[in-house]
């Protein structure tokens, strides 16, 4: 069952990811991204990260993506005009990307041989309680700093979105 769930949602994620890259209309890309995020949430759940799965759905698939779609609608962004990408990017990027993927996969297999299989429920440390305890004790300072970061982001967004600029 775990394997089936993983395979299914991994395929959904990769499929949506590919769709994100190949679609020319931003709204399709955005919807594919939501698909990726949703299936990732299920995978998080499989890994025992229940809080992160929920946060993924609410914050990422919910809030952030709504923001994206809102901007797409606001700007009335249409289909991308076809225009060949520069030769350099193609000539350099494609091989580099392939090499990167190959390298990472190879290294993962090579450096982590015989890793245990993922069993649902084997790790139960990802509860809201556990995360809350960590956040408000050991990671209290980073947590508070984050709030300042968000405040700055809000201010930045307000300043940028004003008319005069």
């Amino acid at each position: 069952m775990d394997a089936l769930l993983f395979l299914f949602f991994a395929l959904v994620a990769v499929g949506c990811g590919i769709n994100l890259v190949v679609q020319t209309h931003p709204i399709s890309s955005a919807l594919s991204l939501i698909g990726v995020m949703g299936s990732l949430a299920v995978l998080y759940l499989l890994l025992g990260a229940e809080f992160m799965a929920m946060a993924q759905l609410i914050v990422y698939a919910g809030a952030i993506m709504v923001l994206f779609i809102f901007v797409i609608m606001l700007l009335n962004a249409g289909v991308e005009r076809k225009k060949g990408t520069s030769m350099l990017v193609k000539a350099l990027g494609v091989p580099a990307l392939v090499a990167f993927l190959g390298m990472v996969s190879y290294l993962i297999q090579r450096l982590m041989p015989g890793t245990e299989n993922v069993t649902f429920g084997a790790f139960q440390g990802g509860t809201v309680q556990a995360i809350g305890r960590k956040l408000f004790t050991e990671y209290l300072l980073p947590f508070e700093v984050t709030s300042v970061l968000i405040l700055i982001a809000i201010l930045g967004a307000v300043v940028l979105a004003r008319k005069e600029i």
Binding site: S86, L88, V89, L92, G93, A96, L97, F100, M103
Partner: peptide, 13 residues
């Protein structure tokens, strides 16, 4: 920007 990104990818490799 994208050619920069390509270089960054190469750097990662």
């Amino acid at each position: 920007i994208r050619s920069y990104a390509a270089w960054v990818t190469l750097g990662c490799v």
